[in-house]
Design a protein around this nucleic acid. Sequence first.
DNA 1: GATGTC
DNA 2: GACATC
Length: 485
Amino acid sequence: MLSRARTAQSHALVFLLKLPYSRLFSSPTGPNYELVQLLTRYKEEEEALETRNPYKVRAFERAIKVIGNFKAPIRSGTQVRRLGGVGERIAKRIDAFLANVPYESTKKGPDGVLKVANDTGVVCKTRIMESLQMISGIGMWKARTLYNAGCTSIVDLNKPEFFSLLSPTQKVCAQFATHLDPSEFVSDNISSKYEVFLVGDHRRNHSCSPTLSLVIVHPLDLKTIAPHAPYNLDRKPRPPKPSHFYSVNDSLLSFDIISPLEGRGLVAATLTAKPQRWRGIIRIPQRAENGSWEVRAERLRQIKEKEGRYCNLSISFVPKQYQGAALLALTGDLEFVKDICDRAHRLGLHFNEYGLWKWCEEERWEFMHGDNEEEIFRELGMEYIEPARRNFGFLTTTTGNKGRPRMKVIEMQRKPVDDTGGQWKNTQEGTETVDVKGIQDRRRQTLAREAEKVKASRGRPRKSLIETTKIKGSRGRPRKVPLQE
DNA sequence: GATGTC
DNA sequence: GACATC
């Protein structure tokens, strides 16, 4: 409780301005180099065939040209669908690539029944189901139902036969899924009187996560309420749910943050609206053809038509005294937070999104720290751990298929960056039989290693890539042809 | 594989 | 959606 939260705070707003989506495609020849490579590969494959179709080759060439000239990073096939030269098939190939699932061309068999084939000639049920579970609200069960009904991709979800199988929330998410784009939401939509922090996947450098998570600090001084359960060493602590902060009496979040967003026509859908938490889908502001920001009416029209780009937004409205704990709990990932909880537990402490608590002699929880992330680390005997190093998910993604697969897993498969020594396991095969003890050991080792690493690079570690990648200039590129479904 | 036409 | 044309 001595020092103030500093570094993280001073960079808080900076984070917002520099979301590094383009880093995904960091390239020698443009923002979509990987897509160009992909299409070039397809083109060459076609050329190599004895039965090659010269028009098909030319079609690929046209698409390569269009995509190579596209100035912004492409996030979905639909985005470039009607630019000319990119049709249904290539759009699908792009979507498959971006979702990191195998491309499946759907062709009718001789019997007229729709057959599914892919690159390997094997229908990959797991992959399809995993990709479907990327949609918020779709879990294993619904994914299986959809798969059995013949749905093969997220794009398929919007077909009436599959769409009708979805719950209302799933429908909303499915409608916007192909447009999700977390990268270009900027801070000038949120009142500057609040401190805003980036948390969640993006803070951990998972820049292609479709969810933008923010912690907004509010000035209200609220009474601190201790955790309910008594300390019990035998009982495993649960990681805090990023759910309910103490109830805020008035509707500050709604008035000061959400209403302005709505006023600008940025809110496409609201999924959760509580005084302390808002979750929904927002439209990413874009410039009109003449370079000016599009007007509200235009945004609303596009939302109605489901054109343009969208992103999940999650805002937690947090009192100052819990700010650090909230950052720690909401940055994740889940496995990392679990470790924090375990660690606290072993020390007779309790960690939740409100702070670090001590079980004191009067047999009650006493508030220790909450406003400062670093202080919580210190109290747990740890050095500060960079958000980018808090990606522990891979430790459990190998234990089986429990829960819904996360976006980060997909991203890791494609791009095992990070400094964890490339030990991400490819989650596709051989995932069923892994002994839990081994995983736990590895988890301990990783924690130890993390602590050492941080020790080695003393002081406030290097600025993360997030902070050095500006995208401001690339946002909201003027569009010649309005996108459509 | 894209596109225009029926 | 099937088909022809590129």
